[in-house]
C-alpha cells in the first residue's frame, strides 16, 4: 500500500515538473523559473544524501547541475521520463565531482534508482562556496581593493585610486591581474 502511495507521488511530481519544463522549453520564463526552483529543492536533498562526506560541495553541485540542466535542455527527448534525464545529469555531475575528489574522500553509493531523485525536497538554498566575495578574500590587497571599488561598488579608476591611496595605473594593473587570478580560481574549483 505504501509502495503504491510512493509511486503515485513520484508520478505526480514527474507530471508537474514536466509541465513546467515543457512550458519553459516553449519560452515561458515564469513557468521555467518555478520549475528550476522546485527542481533545485529535489536536487539539494538528493545530493545532500550522497555527499554527506563533502557538505561544502552540495550547494555548488546543486548550482552546477541546474546550469547543466539549463544549458543542455535541448538534449531532452520528449518521449523520455524527465526523471531519467535529470537523474542522469545529476549523477554525471556527482560522479565527475567525486572522481576529482576520489583521493581525498570516500562517499558511499553514488549509484541508485532514478526514482530516488524525487524522493525528498530541500528548498533551503544556502550560499555557495564559490561565492565571489570569498574568492576575492584570497587575493592580495593590491588586487582585491581595486576590484571591490571598481567592479563591485562601481567607482571610476580615479575615485578608486583616491580611496585606496594607490596610483591610477596601480589600480588598473590590480584589476587586470586580480580578474585573471579570479578566473583561474573559478576554473580550479570546477
Amino acid at each position: 500500500m505504501q509502495r503504491i502511495d510512493k509511486d503515485g507521488r513520484h508520478r505526480e511530481t514527474e507530471e508537474r515538473l514536466r509541465a513546467g519544463f515543457d512550458r519553459g522549453l516553449a519560452g515561458d520564463g515564469a513557468a521555467y523559473q518555478a520549475f528550476l526552483q522546485e527542481l533545485g529543492g529535489y536536487l539539494r536533498a538528493f545530493l545532500r544524501k550522497r555527499l554527506s562526506g563533502l557538505p561544502d560541495d552540495i550547494e555548488d553541485l546543486v548550482q552546477e547541475t541546474l546550469i547543466a540542466v539549463h544549458s543542455r535542455r535541448h538534449t531532452y527527448d520528449t518521449g523520455q521520463p524527465l526523471t531519467a534525464w535529470v537523474h542522469a545529469i545529476a549523477r554525471y555531475k556527482l560522479v565527475d565531482l567525486l572522481r576529482g575528489r576520489a583521493a581525498r574522500d570516500r562517499v558511499s553509493e553514488p549509484f541508485d534508482e532514478e526514482s530516488e531523485l524525487f524522493a525528498a525536497v530541500d528548498s533551503d538554498a544556502a550560499l555557495a562556496k564559490r561565492d565571489v566575495t570569498k574568492l576575492l578574500d584570497q587575493l592580495p590587497e593590491r588586487q582585491r581593493l581595486p576590484i571591490v571599488y571598481t567592479k563591485l561598488e562601481g567607482l571610476s579608476v580615479v575615485e578608486a585610486a583616491r580611496a585606496t591611496g594607490m596610483s591610477e595605473s596601480a589600480v588598473k594593473v590590480g584589476v587586470h591581474r586580480g580578474m585573471k587570478a579570479l578566473a583561474m580560481m573559478i576554473k580550479g574549483t570546477r
Partner: peptide, 11 residues
C-alpha cells in the same frame, strides 16, 4: 552566488 539568484538568471 545564491542558488535562487542563479535560477533567476537562468530563467
Amino acid at each position: 552566488m545564491k542558488t535562487d539568484e542563479l535560477i533567476g538568471l537562468l530563467a
